[in-house]
């Protein structure tokens, strides 16, 4: 776990790095400095268009551009991309299945001091309900760049979830390979499986160390693709470890926890607990304070694991 980089930084850099390989435009809604599309704006000013503070219009404009055969990224904070512009995403982009790639940054409570109005813990739930929408929530900078490339080469609407806060880089390995729709078995174990996504993936790896000292062995699965979700890896984890904990920086309703519960309930029900925002709004504060206050920490994961094992 070397340097810490925010996935939004990796997003902006990926847009620049991939610009000569692929043909695409980038739109933003007056947040380029924050979403980091500003990197692309500076490098490729002719391919960048600011839409101003009008996210609904931006999504439908993106759809119109996409009808001409051009791939287009549309960026804003998750709150506005998935929240405010939900209906435009659903009707202008989703329904005609157009090649619009939504780059949503500042997802979850790690927005920090801006507080609850800007901390979107509902975007995965909203986007999951749109037929044909592919959703990726990368765990680190390496995965974020790979996800951007996957979005470009994938045919159809795509939602990319990025964070504001710097997170540990865990995928900087020579054999790293991103496979859309495939979960990643990061570490094996026998007593339970922690299924994590985004910033909770590195926390799950930390939790594994803590629990190992207590004699508890956990499997860690990274689900970067929230939709379509990798049923195979989840069912195998349920069968082989007998208990599941999900961890996400999102409401426990509608996000990873719900997606995993849906798979397990229909295929292999085992004791399961969800860690995340307990159907509540966030608060202003520093990122460490917030994560601690809402229990989205390695220790929070450990507690859920200890509890779920008792239910086996």
């Amino acid at each position: 776990m070397a340097d810490k980089i925010a996935t939004r930084e990796a997003y902006g850099q990926a847009l620049v790095d991939l610009a000569e390989t692929y043909d695409y435009l980038v739109l933003d809604a007056d947040l380029a400095e924050a979403t980091k599309t500003v990197k692309f704006k500076k490098a490729y000013p002719d391919r960048f268009f600011d839409c101003g503070i009008a996210e609904g219009n931006m999504m439908s404009v993106a759809a119109g551009i996409a009808t001409t055969g051009k791939t287009v990224f549309a960026s804003s904070f998750a709150m506005f991309a998935a929240g405010r512009a939900f209906e435009q995403v659903r009707n202008s982009i989703g329904y005609p299945h157009l090649n619009v790639k939504i780059g949503a940054t500042h997802a979850g409570i790690t927005v920090g001091e801006d507080g609850a109005t800007h901390q979107c813990n509902e975007d995965l739930a909203l986007m999951r309900t749109i037929p044909g929408m592919t959703i990726v929530n990368p765990a680190d900078a390496v995965e974020a760049k790979a996800a951007v490339e996957a979005a470009i080469t994938h045919d159809g609407p795509f939602y990319l979830r990025f964070g504001r806060a710097a997170v540990p880089t865990i995928n900087d390995k020579p054999d790293y390979k991103f496979e859309l729709g495939r979960g990643v078995l990061l570490a094996d174990g026998k007593d339970a499986t922690v299924v994590a996504t985004g910033i909770t993936v590195s926390m799950a790896l930390e939790a594994k160390e803590i629990l190992a000292a207590e004699g508890i062995s956990i499997r860690v699965v990274n689900i970067h693709t929230i939709k379509p979700i990798d049923k195979e890896i989840l069912v195998a984890a349920a069968k082989e470890t007998g208990a599941i904990v999900t961890a996400e920086e999102h409401n426990i309703i509608g996000g990873l926890g719900s997606a995993v519960a849906e798979v397990l309930a229909e295929n292999c029900p085992v004791p399961m607990l969800r860690l995340g925002m307990k159907d509540c709004y966030g608060h202003s504060g520093s990122v460490p304070e917030l994560l601690s206050a809402y229990g989205i920490t390695p220790e929070g994961i450990c507690e859920k694991v200890r509890e779920v094992i008792k239910r086996k």
Binding site: L25, D46, F49, G56, N57, M59, S60, V61, A62, A63, G64, I65, A66, T67, T68, K70, E87, Q88, N91, S92, Y95, P96
Partner: peptide, 25 residues
């Protein structure tokens, strides 16, 4: 039919996007 539309307000934005794409191309 060049664009799916009907939820009011969305089509006019999509049309503007098509016009911008035409200029760029």
């Amino acid at each position: 039919v060049d664009m799916s539309a009907g939820s009011l307000g969305l089509g006019v934005s999509a049309a503007a996007g098509m016009a911008l794409a035409g200029k760029i191309a």
